[in-house]
Nucleic acid binder design. Structure first.
Length: 260
DNA sequence: CCATCATGGATAT
DNA sequence: TATCCCTGATGGC
């Protein structure tokens, strides 16, 4: 679940549910007990940058990073938290439980600023530009397949979108990032600008065209939503999809189509 | 019941 | 590059 679109969707929902409400804040598991210091304060805003989620309060932030396992659950009536719940946010009509995040600690403005500086352009940030992206990608010495996962290069891309973006551009994942043409970088950026908002709206990663299946995007089966990620054979040429480690994650790609 | 796997990333070496 | 962390769904026995 957690690529950039997930965090932006969470920020949107949590903002709608909780902003300006005084909230109960607790950490039943105890690992991030410090969040209870904000108990009773109103949430000013919830927002996402790349794969990071930030809750803004008057004098502090809560920073959430889901990692691979982090998950939110929402309840509409009272219930005991499971013992693994690391953050519980409670308003009058809703309870939000967070399990398994790598982080949900209290942050100051300086840490938030450092995070912003550390991350590359986020395609879901309206102020990010193609120029930012091109400049950033041209600075990398890595293969494009590794650079897309590097949050300092571009923020929010995860293993699924990486595979799909490379396929949509028919790019060889091993091509050095800095050797991509202007057109190739522009295609990557415009695909992210197009697909990530769709991911936020549907809460799913969809890179195929729903109309090709005669369905609405939300009706697509899991295997219809993507071109290559965890697929056995290529939708376009029928060749076997390869899987190999690149950038410390399993990359899925079509060696016969992705030669640019 | 147990092993395996997962859309991530920090840190040590 | 290797190691570690965090949870829970799944599938094989």
């Amino acid at each position: 679940m957690p690529e950039g679109h997930t965090l932006h969707r969470l920020a949107r929902d949590h903002h709608a549910w909780f902003a300006e409400h005084p909230l109960r804040m607790s950490s039943p598991q105890g690992r991030f007990a410090e969040v209870a210091e904000l108990d009773g304060q109103p949430l000013i805003a919830a927002r996402a940058i790349g794969k990071h989620l930030l809750y803004e309060f008057k004098d502090a932030w809560i920073h959430v990073h889901l990692g691979l396992f982090g998950k939110f659950r929402v309840w509409r009536s009272a219930r005991e938290p499971r013992p693994t719940v690391r953050l519980r946010i409670e308003a009058a009509d809703r309870i939000l439980d967070l399990t398994g995040p790598t982080d949900c600690s209290l942050w100051g403005d300086d840490q938030v600023e450092a995070l912003r500086e550390r991350l590359g352009p986020d395609p879901l940030d309206p102020e990010a530009t193609l120029h930012d992206f091109v400049t950033s990608m041209r600075r990398r010495r890595k293969a494009i397949g590794a650079a897309l996962l590097d949050q300092k290069a571009v923020a929010g891309v995860g293993n699924v979108y990486r595979a799909e973006l490379l396929f949509l551009s028919r790019l060889d994942p091993r091509k050095p990032s800095r050797d991509l043409t202007d057109d190739q970088l522009e295609r990557l950026w415009s695909d992210m600008r197009r697909l990530f908002p769709l991911g936020v709206r549907t809460n799913r990663i969809i890179t195929t065209e729903a109309k090709d299946f005669g369905k609405s995007p939300s009706k697509l089966r899991r295997d219809e939503r993507v071109w290559v990620y965890k697929q056995a054979s290529c939708r376009v040429c029928g060749e076997a999809i390869e899987r190999e480690e690149l950038g410390a994650r399993t990359l899925y790609w079509c060696p016969s189509c992705q030669t640019s």
